[in-house]
């Protein structure tokens, strides 16, 4: 009876997945039995064999697995602007997310420090933050496109603007909540303000700052898909939209899976960093 909770949970996960795949398979197999007869010929032409042969328009798990395997075998092929490997598209998205995100870190963490340390700055900047924070990052897109005049840089800007707020607010909160006595320890040791910021406030606030960074990377990954659907050209978001236009639902499902897995990896990376800086109190 000493089967560990983890093992049992894993077994259950596998079972749930198997059940899901089975139901999916059955549901897409039979599809619309005699539906082919009374179908709009126009639509039939559009959808090809999926409709005319009575096959469900929804791809089954086998189709998806096959496509994924195809992508995995050759992730980086490049056959012109509308046909690039999934790996290349993913790399474009990641590059945009990481650039915008790292720029946001560079701005949000020092600014959050300032806000957290200075009640004056905190009060003075609060109204701006309150107004800017609830703006959907995509609402900035036209303005970004108009001023920057480069779709790829605009997407980076949108990532920047959406990841800056959670980090800014968490850093400010973490910094302002640092225990007074820790700061006083450094003060009685005549440790100067700059050194104090790095040796006391930063490590003390690091877990809270990392919480903000983790929220931000999640939001950035959500937003990049939408942003790339808008600006087009490259990236996993564009890939989804392009495959929808090609009516390749299989590829859309593959892309959705890839987006999910990548998002999980990003989150796990930040979670690991967060654990590394968390201290027991």
């Amino acid at each position: 009876m000493a089967v560990s909770l983890n093992l049992r949970a894993m077994l259950l996960s596998v079972l749930i997945f198997a059940a899901f795949v089975a139901v999916w398979h059955l549901a897409t197999q039979s599809g619309a039995g005699g539906a082919a007869a009374n179908i709009d010929p126009e639509y039939a032409k559009l959808m090809g064999q999926q409709v005319t042969q009575g096959k469900s328009p929804m791809p089954g798990p086998l189709d998806v697995a096959q496509t994924i395997w195809g992508h995995l075998k050759d992730p980086f092929y490049n056959k012109g602007p509308n046909d690039k490997g999934l790996g290349i598209q993913l790399a474009f998205s990641l590059a945009r997310v990481l650039t915008g995100y790292l720029l946001a870190v560079l701005v949000a963490v020092p600014l959050g420090f300032l806000i957290g340390l200075s009640p004056l700055m905190s009060k003075a900047l609060d109204p701006f933050i309150q107004v800017l924070k609830p703006i959907s990052p995509l609402a900035w897109m036209p303005l970004a496109l108009y001023t920057i005049k480069d779709s790829s840089v605009s997407a980076v800007f949108v990532i920047f603007i959406c990841s800056v707020w959670p980090m800014l607010l968490n850093t400010a909160f973490g910094v302002s909540a640092v225990r007074r006595e820790w700061v006083n320890v450094a003060r009685t040791l005549e440790v100067g303000p700059l050194k104090r910021a790095f040796t006391i406030i930063l490590p003390a606030a690091a877990p809270t700052i990392l919480t903000g960074m983790r929220i931000s990377i999640g939001i950035a990954w959500l937003v990049i898909v939408a942003a790339e659907m808008l600006v087009g050209g490259t990236g996993i978001g564009y890939f989804v939209w392009n495959e929808w236009n090609n009516l390749s639902i299989t590829n859309v499902i593959v892309a959705i899976t890839v987006i999910g897995v990548m998002g999980m990896l990003l989150d796990q990376t930040l979670a690991r960093l967060q654990r590394a800086v968390t201290y027991p109190d």
């Binding site: 820790w182 006083n184 320890v185 003060r187 009685t188 040791l189 005549e190 027991p280």
Partner: peptide, 18 residues
């Protein structure tokens, strides 16, 4: 201001937990 000539042992240990 504070000085290294005057050491303080605070109420509660005030050690840096990290």
């Amino acid at each position: 201001g504070p000085s290294l000539d005057r050491a303080v042992i605070f109420q509660g240990h005030s050690l840096l937990p990290w």
